[in-house]
């Protein structure tokens, strides 16, 4: 048993060392090529990385060893160790390559300010003639976000029980359900609401309904995660107590789980509505209706004073939502 663990940790350590050197040599070649010093060849890159990876691994003092076999490594200050220098080079080279790839140019940032001077001055001088029209678009956004949140609640509520480790039995069925619900929620959540909006715009046509569906999907997945984490944090004592009275699983959930999660759930939901209002604007940009759509139209017509009005209205709503939801959450968490 013990021996197996050792071999496994050795393999893990070697893989880490190899990956580190593949990255370091790869980025090194990239930089040298930018400077026209060497010509990149895949075989050179591969051989150098593997050789360096093996050399560092054999020293028994590499980052891979530090990560998986730390008990075998003597405690020393980082600059006296190989792994310490590996980390240092890793950070340094990443920063340098990043700077180059992103084309960071601070001079441009300062010198070319005058290009946007006109636009900025117009943004700060909003056109109030269109106030009524924009307010109606804004209310569309708020209602859209509200409905998306409200519809997401019951779905996420049900899913969260199946995505909570401590509620799912530790057998094949329980594990399978847990993993499936968790994975689907993670995938749905990792796809941006913006992408969902594009999908639903094609599905149901451009307009607030598509925006609502996009937010609904995303919120459902996000709330499932937040809710289930809340369930995993509850006090398990009442669950034990309810089981010991002979209650069935559903009764245990109703009595021991739900009363413990109801107020954090409300707090999260409030927070989610707040996020949804902000996201509804972005979703509107790709056809999800509301103020986002108006923002896009005005921006394309280069009506910067109208864009300014929209910008200030959104800021106002976000500020109010932030304040209200903050206060409500504070109350909910305390009681």
């Amino acid at each position: 048993m013990k021996k197996q663990y050792n071999t496994l940790s050795l393999i893990k350590a070697f893989i880490i060392d190899l990956l580190i050197w593949l990255y370091l040599v790869g980025t090194g070649f990239y930089l040298l090529e930018q400077l026209n010093v060497v010509e990149y060849k895949f075989s050179y890159f591969l051989i150098t990385s593997v050789v360096l990876g093996i050399i560092t691994f054999v020293t028994q003092n590499s980052l891979g060893h530090k990560g998986f076999r730390s008990k075998k490594i003597k405690k020393r200050r980082w600059y006296k160790t190989l792994w310490g220098w590996e980390i240092f080079i890793l950070i340094a080279i990443t920063f340098v390559v990043g700077w180059d790839i992103v084309e960071v140019n601070p001079i441009k940032l300062i010198a070319k300010f005058k290009n946007s001077k006109v636009i900025i001055s117009q943004l700060f001088n909003p056109n109030f003639d269109n106030l009524l029209k924009m307010l109606s678009a804004l209310s569309e956004t708020i209602y859209l976000a509200l409905l998306a949140t409200v519809f997401a609640i019951p779905l996420a509520f049900i899913f969260s029980f199946f995505a909570a480790r401590n509620l799912m039995p530790k057998n094949l069925l329980g594990n399978t359900v847990y993993i499936i619900v968790r994975t689907v929620a993670t995938i749905v959540r990792s796809i941006e609401a913006l992408v969902w909006a594009i999908i639903f715009c094609v599905w149901v046509g451009i307009g607030p309904f598509a925006g609502m569906l996009a937010l609904l999907f995303h919120s459902m997945a996000a709330l499932t995660k937040l809710y289930s984490e809340q369930i995993e944090n509850i006090d398990s004592g009442p669950i034990e107590a309810m089981k010991s009275t002979g209650a069935n699983t559903l009764q245990v959930w109703i009595y021991a789980v739900i009363p413990q999660i109801i107020s954090p759930y409300l707090a999260f939901t409030m927070y989610r509505w707040d996020i949804n209002v902000r996201m509804a604007t972005i979703v509107g940009f790709v056809g999800g209706g509301g103020i986002g759509l108006a923002l896009k139209q005005e921006q394309q017509l280069l009506h910067w004073r109208n864009v300014g009005l929209i910008m200030w209205l959104i800021a106002l709503v976000v500020w109010i939502m932030d304040m209200v939801s903050g206060k409500v959450r504070e109350k909910l968490v305390k009681h």
């Binding site: 309810m242 010991s244 009275t245 002979g246 009764q251």
Partner: peptide, 28 residues
């Protein structure tokens, strides 16, 4: 389990609910 009651060091009551509801929960 209905015939085997259990009492715990940390009481294990449902703290957000009333005393009466907690008592009734023994009957679940």
């Amino acid at each position: 389990r209905r015939e085997i009651g259990m009492i715990f060091q940390q009481f294990n009551l449902i703290k957000n609910l009333t005393v009466l509801t907690n008592a009734l929960s023994g009957r679940l």
